[in-house]
Design a protein around this nucleic acid. Structure first.
Length: 488
RNA sequence: GGCGGCGUACCCGAGUGGUAAGGGAGUGGUCUGCAAAACCAUUAUUCAUCGGUUCAAUUCCGAUCGCCGCCUCCA
């Protein structure tokens, strides 16, 4: 059995994962700045780290998982002004929205979900300490971090300070000692939200909230810190500088960064308007299809979005649910109690996940199992081996957070025909159909009537009813003794 | 300009120093009243191009072309 290896951005290598404390993992993932709806790019990051969280737990680790909300910053103030609402109302609106969207994507709640504005005093204390130890300085109510004093600066993003210096854009703020220095505390202008501080009215700079909250909940050093690839510089670079300047020790052992979602190969981004909001996508696709799509590629490489690809994901997920639905039915008839897993397949899954969370390969294990299960059903082998495969599919999908939903499947059997009041029902319904006076409530009855027609070999009417059913967005599937129907 | 990533069938996408997972789509067949689902068979002598190392490279090295990202807010 393999062991978990993780590609560490810090060393740019795949490394065996060894937690700092036996059996425990501390993980911090940068959440979102709450000033707008979440898009597919956010979803990829959130879903991927949810998979990491679930997988680590499945390995038996006691995981403390922190994902923050950055709920005060320039964009929030700007947006609140544009909409003419109080900034706090804006952030709360989008935090609620975040929870709503991501619960649909079957995301587990993190252990802690801290907000920057709930930790202002901690932030002020940290800034004061940075000033005390010479890593930060005050200019007119602003506080800046002295980048050049932190010798390791640039180690995460692979840049040298001089390189950055030459490429640095001209900053309007001439007060800084060095163009590379960044704000840890920003003084507020009139009308802007502020908190009292030893340096006057102001608010935290970007970056400091993550340094403070991660260390507060996870300690001075912790195992995993994650986020989107675009956060490597400057956000995570700055976090390292601040955090290590505060603690004097290494901040994080493993840095994990996920690649972007792209549209026509270009980065999905709010600032360019090149994005699809989650709730818009949910109107056309089931969240679990979206989730499958998001983990269909290895997390580090870009994932290109298109509706064609989502349609493919939808089809492949239908393959899983069809198969599981049929097999669970089979086990309704034939009780077989076993929680055993197919050890061979499950080991293949573990090997895939242990190889830097290779979800593509992990999914291949699921599809191989599906094929094998279908073959069993085909040859009527409803046995313990099939049950262990089914258990394994369910187990793997749970770890990946993919919810297998077979409850939408409804069925009518030939036995139900007897319950029909009388034969005139058909004429009544055909009349209703003719008048289009039917609704979702009638579906079950329609399917049953169609079955009656089929039993009576009245295929013309059977097909007519099927066409109506299809028009209403349902699909029927016949087997020897029953008809299964479900909404498409 | 600096740094980094990617280029695998019709599409998506894993992977390995010894000859290419999986999904979607297509084609032929089985099954079915017909569909659908499922099953079977089939679809890359080839992994951007050109060199090099090697008994052997798609996998390592170099060059070239193409695409993308970061260097400014950004998952």
């Amino acid at each position: 059995m393999s062991i978990l290896t993780i590609h560490n951005t810090l060393t740019n290598k795949k490394e065996p994962f060894e937690s700092l404390q036996q059996g425990k993992v501390g993980m911090y993932v940068c959440g979102v700045t709450v000033y707008d709806r979440c898009h597919l790019g956010h979803a990829r990051a959130v879903v991927f780290f949810d998979v990491v969280y679930r997988y680590l737990k499945s390995l038996g680790y006691d995981v403390t998982f922190v994902r923050n909300f950055t709920d005060i910053d320039d964009k929030i103030i700007k947006r609140a002004n544009e909409e003419g609402i109080f900034w706090k109302d804006l952030t709360e609106k989008y935090i609620t929205k975040f929870h709503k969207d991501f619960s649909r994507l079957n995301i587990l709640s993190p252990t802690f979900e801290p907000k920057a504005t709930d930790h202002i005093q901690d932030i002020i204390d940290a800034v004061a300490k940075l000033i005390d130890n010479g890593f930060a300085y005050v200019v007119d109510g602003d506080v800046y971090f002295r980048v050049r004093k932190f010798e390791k600066y640039g180690s995460l993003s692979g840049r040298s300070v001089d390189e950055l210096q030459s490429g640095a854009r001209i900053d309007v703020n001439e007060q800084k000692e060095d163009p590379l220095d960044f704000a840890v505390w920003k003084s507020s202008k009139d009308g802007e939200p502020y908190w009292d501080s030893p340096w006057g009215h102001g608010r935290p700079g970007w970056h400091i909230e993550c340094s403070v909250m991660s260390q507060k909940y996870l300690g001075k050093i912790f195992d995993i810190h994650g986020g989107g690839h675009d956060l490597i510089f400057p956000h995570h670079e700055n976090e390292i500088a601040q955090s290590e300047a505060l603690s004097g020790n290494q901040f994080v052992k493993y840095w994990i960064h996920n690649g972007f979602v792209t549209i026509n190969k270009e980065k999905m981004s709010k600032s360019t308007g090149n994005f699809f909001a989650l709730d818009d996508i949910f109107e056309h696709y089931e969240p679990r299809v979206l989730r499958l799509f998001l983990i269909s590629r290895h997390y580090k490489v870009p994932l290109d979005y298109s509706t064609d690809l989502l349609d493919e994901a939808k089809q492949s997920w239908a393959r899983v649910e069809n198969s599981v639905g049929i097999i669970e039915d089979a086990f309704m008839q034939k009780q077989l109690d076993s929680d055993e897993l197919d050890q061979f397949a499950f080991c293949q899954f573990m090997d895939a996940m242990n190889d830097d969370f290779n979800t593509s390969q992990a999914l291949a294990v699921v599809f191989d199992l599906i094929t094998a299960m279908n073959q069993s059903v085909m040859s009527n082998k409803i046995d313990i081996e099939l049950k262990t495969k089914l258990n394994t599919v369910r187990r793997i999908c749970t770890i990946l957070g993919l919810e297998i939903n077979t409850s939408d499947l409804c069925r009518v059997t030939v036995d139900d025909i007897e319950k029909l009041s009388d034969a005139t029902d058909l004429d009544v319904y055909l009349e209703k159909i003719h008048k289009r006076d039917i609704s979702d409530k009638d579906i079950r009855h329609l399917v049953l009537l169609r079955l009656v027609c089929r039993v009576n070999k009245d295929f013309q009417n059977a097909d007519k009813i099927r066409a109506i059913i299809a028009d209403m967005g349902y699909h029927v599937r016949d087997t020897k003794k029953e008809t299964v129907f479900f909404k498409i």
